[in-house]
């Protein structure tokens, strides 16, 4: 086994996904198969190979420090599931 049910549950918590037992079971099996498949990358010796982040070489994309108009509160909130004045409202965050 490449991955256990417990690990899958841990990953689901990290990813903030409430998964049903049946989903967890299916995922454990599928992830195990996929992780088993990707194991083949270990056939390759990649010692000293520089990882590729972008396939096209690129660097230094900047913007100047110039103010652009914001979109406004109404636009910012137009899709908000819950509002509190001009804020977004969420269930209580306990500190």
């Amino acid at each position: 086994m490449k991955i256990s049910r417990e690990e899958v549950e841990h990953v689901a918590r990290l990813a903030r996904l409430a998964l049903q037992p049946a989903e967890l079971e299916a995922l454990t099996e599928q992830m195990d198969a996929i992780l088993g498949y990707v194991e083949k990358l270990n056939e390759l010796d990649t010692e000293g190979i520089i990882p590729t982040a972008h396939a096209v070489p690129m660097e230094n994309a900047f913007r100047e420090d110039l103010v652009k108009p914001s979109i406004g509160i109404e636009r910012a909130q137009q899709n908000a599931p819950s509002k509190d004045g001009s804020c977004f409202k969420v269930p209580k965050v306990i500190e």
Binding site: V38, T46, I50, P51, T52
Partner: peptide, 11 residues
Amino acid sequence: LKAQKVRTLIR
């Protein structure tokens, strides 16, 4: 990281 290195080889 391994995948990014293999990506280099593929490229």
